[in-house]
Amino acid sequence: MYDYIKAIILGIVEGLTEFLPVSSTGHMILAGDLLNFEGEAADTFKIVIQLGAVMAVLVLYWTRYMGILKDMLAFKFKTPGKLNALHLIVAMIPALIVYLVFKDFIKEVLFGPGPVLIGLVIGGILMIIASRVKRKVTAENTDDITYKQALGIGLFQCFALWPGFSRSGSTISGGLLLGTSQKAAADFTFIISVPVMFGATILDMYDSREHLNSDALLLFLIGFIAAFVVAMIAVVTFLNLIKKLKLEWFALYRFVLAAVFYFLIMR
C-alpha cells in the first residue's frame, strides 16, 4: 500500500512540474530521494509517468496537432505565416543530437541531487536574465514564430538535458531572448514538448524494458493516471498565470527549493 501512495505522490509531482519552469526531473529526483524511491525500477516508473504528462498536453493541444498532421499528410511541411511541422522539426533537432551523443554521461553524472540543485540555481538565473533583458517582440503568438527563432529555442532546449534546468524554463527563456512574447514562448514550448518527450520516453522505456512487467503494472498505471490528470490542470493554470506573472517569480521558487533541499539532503 505504501508503494501505491508513493506512486500517487510522484505522479502528482510529475504532473504539477513537468510543464512549469521549475524542472520536473529535478523535483522527481529530489522527491524520490526523500521517499526512498530509487533504483532501476523506480527510474522506469518515473519514465512511465512522464508519458502520462505528455498525453495531457496532447489532449489539450489536439486541434493544433491535427492541423499540423493534416498539413504533413498533404506534404505541406512549410506553410508561411503559420506554425507547421518544419518549426517543430527545427526545434527538436538540437536537443535530439545532444541527447543521443551524451545520453550516458547525462544519466551517470547529472542525475543526482547535487547536479539538480546546481541546475535549479543556474536555470533560475537564466530565467531572470531573459525576463529583464528588453527585446523587441516580433512574435506575439506561435504563428508568428520564424524558423530562425524555432531553431534558437531548440538550442536553448539543450540546457534542459541537465536535470534541474527545466525544459520549459529553458525554452521560454530562449523565446523571450529571441523576440517572442512570453505567451507565444509558453505555447510553443508545450507544442514541441510532445514529440520531444514522447520520443525520449519511448527510447528510455525500451532501454528499461526488463522492468516493464505485470507485477509493476498497477503501480505504473496509478502514477500514469495521477500525472495525466494533474498535468491537465497544471498546464491550463500555467497558461493563465503566464499572462500575469514574470519568469522571475518561478526563478525565486527555484532558489528557495534549492536552498530547502540543500539542507534536507546535501548536508
Rank of each mutant, 00 (worst) to 15 (best):
181 S>K: 08
201 T>P: 01
195 P>C: 06
225 I>Y: 03
207 D>N: 10
181 S>P: 03
218 L>Q: 12
182 Q>A: 09
195 P>I: 08
201 T>I: 04
219 L>E: 05
224 F>E: 06
187 D>A: 13
184 A>R: 04
181 S>T: 02
185 A>G: 01
222 I>P: 04
193 S>Q: 03
187 D>M: 13
214 S>H: 15
207 D>I: 06
182 Q>K: 15
192 I>D: 07
208 S>R: 06
213 N>T: 13
197 M>C: 07
191 I>T: 10
185 A>W: 00
212 L>I: 09
185 A>K: 00
194 V>H: 05
194 V>Y: 05
199 G>N: 12
190 F>Q: 09
179 G>Q: 00
184 A>L: 08
221 L>G: 11
202 I>T: 01
193 S>I: 01
191 I>D: 06
197 M>Q: 08
182 Q>W: 04
207 D>F: 03
193 S>R: 06
183 K>R: 12
213 N>Q: 11
222 I>W: 11
224 F>I: 01
209 R>E: 01
209 R>K: 14
209 R>Q: 07
218 L>V: 14
216 A>G: 10
223 G>S: 05
179 G>T: 00
199 G>T: 05
218 L>I: 15
197 M>K: 09
187 D>T: 11
188 F>H: 10
189 T>M: 12
202 I>N: 01
188 F>R: 07
206 Y>W: 14
200 A>S: 10
190 F>M: 15
209 R>W: 09
191 I>A: 08
186 A>Y: 10
183 K>E: 14
204 D>M: 12
200 A>N: 08
203 L>P: 00
223 G>E: 00
215 D>M: 13
193 S>N: 08
224 F>A: 08
217 L>S: 12
184 A>I: 02
196 V>S: 15
193 S>A: 13
202 I>H: 00
199 G>P: 07
195 P>A: 04
192 I>A: 11
217 L>C: 06
211 H>L: 04
216 A>T: 13
181 S>L: 09
180 T>S: 08
195 P>L: 06
192 I>F: 10
203 L>E: 05
213 N>R: 13
212 L>A: 02
211 H>F: 12
222 I>H: 06
180 T>G: 05
196 V>E: 08
199 G>W: 08
216 A>D: 14
213 N>M: 09
180 T>E: 01
216 A>S: 14
212 L>W: 01
200 A>K: 02
203 L>H: 08
179 G>W: 00
196 V>T: 15
193 S>E: 09
218 L>G: 07
221 L>W: 10
209 R>F: 11
221 L>T: 15
220 F>N: 14
204 D>Y: 11
225 I>P: 08
211 H>P: 00
225 I>H: 04
185 A>N: 03
